[in-house]
Design a protein around this nucleic acid. Structure first.
Length: 449
RNA sequence: GGAGAGCUGGCCGAGCGGCCGAAGGCGCGCCCCUGCUAAGGGCGUAUAGGUUUACUCCUAUCGAGGGUUCGAAUCCCUCGCUCUCCGCCA
């Protein structure tokens, strides 16, 4: 998987709530509290060993500490009220004050103890990945992923197909050396028709999703704060994958998913508002720390790339169907661009940290004679929503409940560009523009030559 | 960047050290009255955690965090955000 390294970075986080509300923020806390054995079984499916004994003893401690702190608080409150009344009726309050001389210190100590236990619980909880859905195949690595379907037939070339780097050179439209001079490795400059094709792909995807698939085009900040990154899971564990802005609390977004999903952070949607369907085109910035030596050549793995992202916020009962639907939306783009691809259901071992189920779309690359990831579509269920405190008011209960979030690339633009170049090349190194894209290219059918 | 004002429940808005989880209004829900394109009355209406079979009770939250105090929506500090004026700017 191209993006699997990134996906493994999905981690849980704790929202900093008031100290009394500090909570598990990843898996359902009720499951962990009331049925730790069941939680352990579910987590064991993805090879995570839950320390039940530790969890239970911490829970025990927590209850005790919380109960202590609260009863001291109760006492303080009632004593303070008595003092207030005594004062109001002109009585001497000195004896009352003397009685509770050390109450404040005791209370503070109890609160500190509680905070400490909660922190420990938080540390444990932060290591817990999402629970895979029942239909996610067992497996250890991407080799165990299950192919669901294939679309299109890889073209039989009567010549040796070139890779996009060579094609870019022939067309004088793709320059990695200049980009390296301007910035560093893993950047690119595009010129002329290729730059236009790159833009055309973006426009085409946005139009398709807004006009045919019912998404609302959305513009969002490209710099986000740490709360947002905690909300979608990149922080705190994986700051090394992000570009941080010095002396601020801001980071360059690694995907539009971060700003877009955070739209619903700390909000309660009405039943009528759901589902929310957002499509956003943004640049994405990834440090790619730890991927040295992988895909060093070409457009495949860059520090900066464009992506059109689909995000849906849905009622819990709808998220399974939404994942299928959203994946279809991404597939439509590939089909209209006449790019052969296959759909893969990720096995447990390859599943992203916060995903409960993920389909990858892999496009055919003639130069590599293999399918490579171009989109990843996931159902996070309530895993992200819990951290985001993204809720809806369920009309059946009239209570705020967690929503489900589903998202996917529709598609990664840079990779789509290289796929179009490689799949639609001819012997002269020209690129034949797919029919669907021509309106965005002033009717042009061929680039180059 | 400079100066000032503000941030209270779904919304508006009072409160400025104890009787305030918070008046009043709007909205919303249920019920009653009335009976026809007006209206009136009653009750209810935040979130989270703990406790309980349940009812209940307890705790926290008035932008966030910290401080003063027996006690903070109310006083002090820091930060964030909003608005107004000035400067600058795409």
């Amino acid at each position: 998987m191209f993006l699997s390294k990134y996906k493994q970075k999905w981690k849980l986080i704790i929202l900093s709530a008031g100290q009394h509300n500090l909570e598990f923020k990843m898996l359902d806390p009720k499951l962990l509290r009331n049925e730790p054995k069941k939680a352990a079984e579910l987590l064991a499916r993805r090879g995570y060993v839950l320390d039940i004994a530790l969890l239970e003893s911490l829970e025990q401690e927590r209850k005790q500490a919380q109960s202590d702190a609260q009863s001291l608080q109760t006492e303080r409150n009632s004593r303070s009220k008595m003092i207030g009344k005594a004062k109001a009726s002109g009585e001497d309050i000195k004896p009352l004050l003397a009685e509770i001389a050390d109450l404040g210190d005791k209370h503070k100590a109890a609160e500190a103890r509680l905070a400490e236990v909660l922190q420990k619980l938080t540390d444990v909880a932060m290591e817990l990945p999402n629970i895979p859905q029942d239909d996610v195949p067992v497996g250890k690595s991407e080799d165990d992923n299950v192919e669901i379907s294939r679309w299109g037939t890889p073209k039989e070339f009567s010549f040796e197909p070139k890779d996009h780097i060579d094609l870019g050179e022939i067309l004088s439209g793709m320059d990695f050396e200049t980009a390296a001079k301007i910035s560093q490795a893993r950047f690119v400059t595009l010129h002329g028709p290729l730059a236009k094709l790159h833009r055309a792909l973006t426009q085409f995807m946005l139009d398709q999703h807004t006009e045919e698939h019912g998404y609302t085009e959305t513009y969002v900040p490209y710099l986000v704060n740490s709360d947002s990154l905690r909300g979608t899971g990149q922080l705190p564990k994986f700051s090394e994958d992000l570009f941080a802005i010095k002396d601020t609390d801001l980071y360059l977004i690694p995907t539009a998913e971060v700003p877009v999903t955070n739209i619903v952070r700390d909000t309660i949607s009405t039943d009528k508002q759901l589902p929310l369907k957002f499509v956003a085109h943004t640049p994405c910035f990834r440090s790619e720390a730890g991927s040295y030596g992988r895909d060093v050549r070409g457009l495949i793995r860059q520090h900066q790339f464009e992506k059109v992202e689909l995000v849906q916020v849905v009622r819990p009962q709808d998220s399974d169907a939404t994942l299928d639907e959203l994946t279809q939306h991404a597939e439509t783009i590939l089909q209209k661009l006449e790019l052969p691809y296959r759909k893969v259901l990720l096995c447990i071992g390859d599943l992203g940290f916060s995903s409960s189920k993920t389909y990858d779309l892999e496009v055919w690359l003639p130069s590599q004679k293999t399918y490579r990831e171009i989109s990843s579509c996931s159902n996070f269920q309530d895993f992200q929503a819990r951290r985001l405190q993204a809720r809806w008011r369920n009309p059946e209960t009239n209570k705020p409940e967690l929503v489900h979030t589903v998202n996917g690339s529709g598609l990664a633009v840079g990779r789509t560009l290289l796929a179009v170049m490689e799949n639609h090349q001819d012997e002269q190194g020209r690129i034949h523009i797919p029919e669907a894209l021509r309106p965005y290219m002033n009717g042009k059918a061929i680039i180059g030559g």
